[in-house]
Design a protein around this nucleic acid. Sequence first.
DNA 1: GGGTACAGTGTTAACGTCCAGAAATGGACT
DNA 2: AGTCCATTTCTGGACGTTAACACTGTACCC
Lengths: 373, 373
Amino acid sequence: MESPRFLATGAGDFFACLPPGATAAFVLRRGVAHNSPMIKRNARLPRLEDVAERAGVSHQTVSRVINNHPNVSKATRERVEAAIAELGYRRNTAARSLVTRRSQTIGVLASELSQYGPANTLLGVEQAARNAGYFVSIAALKSVSRESIFDAVRHFMDQSVDGIVVSVPHSETLLALADLTLGVPVVAVGSLGSDAVSGAMVDQARGAELAVGHLIELGHRRIGHVAGPQDWIDGVARAEAWSATMRSAGLEDDLLMTGDWSAGSGYEIGRKLAAERSATAIFVGNDQMALGLLRAFNEAGVRVPDDVSVVGFDDQPESGYFTPPLTTVRQDFEELGRRCIDLMLTAIEDGKGVSSTVVAPELVVRQSTSAPA
Amino acid sequence: MESPRFLATGAGDFFACLPPGATAAFVLRRGVAHNSPMIKRNARLPRLEDVAERAGVSHQTVSRVINNHPNVSKATRERVEAAIAELGYRRNTAARSLVTRRSQTIGVLASELSQYGPANTLLGVEQAARNAGYFVSIAALKSVSRESIFDAVRHFMDQSVDGIVVSVPHSETLLALADLTLGVPVVAVGSLGSDAVSGAMVDQARGAELAVGHLIELGHRRIGHVAGPQDWIDGVARAEAWSATMRSAGLEDDLLMTGDWSAGSGYEIGRKLAAERSATAIFVGNDQMALGLLRAFNEAGVRVPDDVSVVGFDDQPESGYFTPPLTTVRQDFEELGRRCIDLMLTAIEDGKGVSSTVVAPELVVRQSTSAPA
DNA sequence: GGGTACAGTGTTAACGTCCAGAAATGGACT
DNA sequence: AGTCCATTTCTGGACGTTAACACTGTACCC
């Protein structure tokens, strides 16, 4: 390695540009503008041809080795692998994707990322995708409009992603997507999808049923629901399941209010509820609105759970520390992400059609619910 | 357009494969496995050559148009632009990046994404990067270890990203990165960086000073601090600034406790504090731990703010709805992301060296603070 | 011994873009 | 008309990979 033709420190190392004998730390300390693009431009990474030369084979044979083709003799394979390790060769994604028309990238279209659910869904999706050897490109929407969705999709198509995961929790989004024929698989997460789009979701109906069932079992008869916005898939699903569960138990489903998921809207609704005192229990669409409710009740002197029971939805880490600790429905977002990528991979790799999968929720009973007075 | 050689519906449309006269929706409804990879393989998108043919120029001229080279006559440019629009041409990223050695992609290394701060930082970074015409690739770390950081960095290098944004809030991470010479710019977000890495951060010291200063002004003398973990950059910075502010006001800085950011740890510490009653005010490292504190105080009959004042840090959306509404320090994460991408772009495009930038925090006074009894 | 079969390898040609240099175009000036 | 220059346009490689096909040599069969 006296006069290397290209920059590579060997041993599979991708940290280039070290003068012989110097540690990486040394280089940084020297005050060299290591992050100037210069270095990158000067650097010439080893390519198939270089590996081939070193191993004494053709570049195609090297390609076979790195792609695990069967028709390579053991001896050759080992020689090539040694050469790869020595040179620290790494396959050039751009060249590969130019010729294969595959980018090994999955685009994730997300919104509401500052909320607990969507953020954790993203986490699960990213983990699963990277494990499967895919890159994850993200487009977060500040506001959900047809325009911004199309923008993001165009962005992804420019990148020629192999598939798009849509984690936008509005019903409208799915409709907007159904109008596109993209040429790549689309998987919705947090929705069952449609006849055209695969979907992975937590079973919202079952979750609501668990929550309302719990209240009914405790002996409540007047159970209200604070729904999320009705342009959200989850908002609708939970409201409908509340309604269905009430009716099948022979109870009235007339105490329906609608918030916007925020603690603020929960607070406003809570003030009204505290004044009316029409229900002995409230099933709230998410934990944040439940937090607002609790605050309003506390201010108005309504005791939870003695006067009114409250159940939330999500089980955020904080929910166990509300005043009082909140009974709620837990969603396993990581599992959700995993399922979603499973669907995506079968669609990309096996060319499978549309299908959906459902993750079971779980009721977590804490201290915000009890039998009615 | 009787027998198009490649699939494109014209009018800048990237939704391919429509038979003439059919709407996209129609195609989907037909039950065709639209998301099978088949369609993609069959599809042949227009390229420079196709546009050139249509406009009656050479492919190089088209290239000049899309890259805004000056030496193209107005007439030619218009003809080319028309052809581009008609064919719905979009530049092939892989081919471009193969030859330019630029991927137009920024890698974001993130962790703790389920927490408010990091999630919003990501949002800001993504927004700014996409606005600047970059793709955003994400690698989320489940656990922060040298191993997982190197994995993620290798992942990014395989993708040949043009730069890496590091949003991992542990001090250790920066150290791990300082040991690498990557050949691409690295910008830390949520840290000032080092002599080798640029950084953008919210001014934690100023934030803590605002919080503690507010309490001192109200007349408090015994002010405790519930710090975040001391392997977190923010945790250390806030604790140190609390200490410095106390001492420069001639007050003791001996009431220091350490939590782990969670409401749970805040609750535990809150129980101890409620028993001891050693402080008249507590500056808590983040809003979640403050929530735990409030709950512990409420259980123990300690009134906030009458008996003890509490200040948080972050200003999450819920914090205004705690019991009582929390006085806290707001961080503008979006602005933070913007600054971070600014640094990145100058590093990538102008080859500028290492620098850092600081975003000012803001004190939000609500009802959890008052003068001591 | 000539044929097939097939594992193992090499050769050549794409993929779609950008870059350098060459070539053409059109005035302005001799 | 011829020369020169500036502007505009074209031609011919790269870039690093994979795919298709061609070529060896060995094993095995009739």
